[in-house]
């Protein structure tokens, strides 16, 4: 069968795409002007100095060396992985919170049409405005707010920002999904005289899976973006966002080092998307419509 040859082609071409990016980078670095290209006072193409565009192999090499000159310092890649895991943890907490609140709001809107009418326009509107601009303000809660026995900590601010970015796609996707069962199905459940709760569990939630998964995919990417941005504006130590700023500040002396946490953020995004993909595989039974459609 030709199946084998069909399957390796996209993989090989995909790898070629990544390689092409590297070749483009190194090619421009070799041939482009050192001070970049400026048109009418605007920088259009970057500087090709080692400071502006380090060699790809220098980036990789730097990642394998110790992070600091201090004796026994961990290599850069290890520091990056640890920071990425911290950010993943915070983003996950935010994602969970945002998902729960989003689905609860969607349930409210599905149950009471007036709630849907009242909330829906705001929900759509809020997706078009830069809510993340609030990040520095939420961050200022850190260390000052006291909720009963709980002292508000900076990482909670990061989680809250991640959660409200994750919340909107979840609410919109969940509402669309909960309303997705066709008339024949809702009629059928009505003839079975089932309660709202049973209908939800047996019909609406399973039918919502094909809508919840893409929403979760968006929400996951949003939660990670929110966590990284929040870490940057908090200066919260430990996460990948902070590391991006920290390593960039040593930029002029050590330009290759700044790329390691960025690669870490990229891998973090890919890893989280991979987890959502696996969840999608596990829920395959609820996605049969999607595949045959």
């Amino acid at each position: 069968m030709a199946v084998g040859s069909v399957r390796w082609r996209p993989v090989a071409l995909g790898a070629a795409g990544v390689l092409g990016l590297v070749v483009l980078w190194e090619g421009y670095k070799a041939l482009g002007p050192a001070e970049g290209v400026t048109v009418a006072g605007q920088a259009v193409l970057p500087r090709t100095t080692d400071l502006g565009m380090p060699h790809v192999w220098d980036m990789i090499g730097r990642a394998l060396e110790p992070a600091t000159s201090i004796e026994g310092a961990a290599p850069v890649w290890l520091a990056v992985v640890q920071a990425a895991l911290v950010t993943l943890g915070t983003a996950t907490a935010g994602l969970l919170l945002g998902t729960v609140v989003g689905i609860l709001l969607a349930l409210l809107m599905q149950r009471f049409v007036v709630a849907e009418w009242a909330v829906q326009p705001w929900l759509i509107l809020s997706q078009t405005v830069p809510l993340i601009a609030l990040a520095p303000l939420v961050v200022s809660w850190g260390g000052r707010l006291q909720l009963g026995p709980v002292q508000w900590e900076t990482w909670m601010s990061v989680g809250v920002i991640a959660s409200y970015l994750a919340f909107f796609p979840m609410a919109v996707g969940a509402l669309r999904g909960l309303k997705s069962p066709e008339a024949a199905h809702t009629d059928l459940f009505r003839t079975y005289a089932t309660s709202w709760w049973t209908t939800l569990l047996r019909l609406r939630l399973p039918a919502a899976v094909p809508y919840l998964l893409p929403a979760l995919r968006l929400a996951t990417a949003a939660a990670i973006l929110g966590a990284v941005v929040a870490e940057v504006s908090t200066g919260h130590k430990g996460g990948i966002g902070r590391l991006i700023i920290e390593y960039a500040q040593s930029g002029s002396a050590d330009p290759a080092k700044a790329w390691a946490p960025i690669a870490g953020a990229v891998l973090l995004g890919l890893f989280a998307a991979g987890l959502v993909y696996l969840l999608g595989l596990a829920l395959g039974r609820y996605r049969r419509q999607e595949e045959t459609a």
């Binding site: 970057p46 500087r47 966002g241």
Partner: peptide
């Protein structure tokens, strides 16, 4: 395709500091 798929799930703003070095 894989580059775009990756770009969709990655926090692109994280490139800001290195772009400052470049431009």
């Amino acid at each position: 395709a894989p580059l775009v798929a990756a770009a969709a799930v990655v926090p692109i703003v994280a490139l800001a500091p290195v772009l400052s070095n470049m431009f």
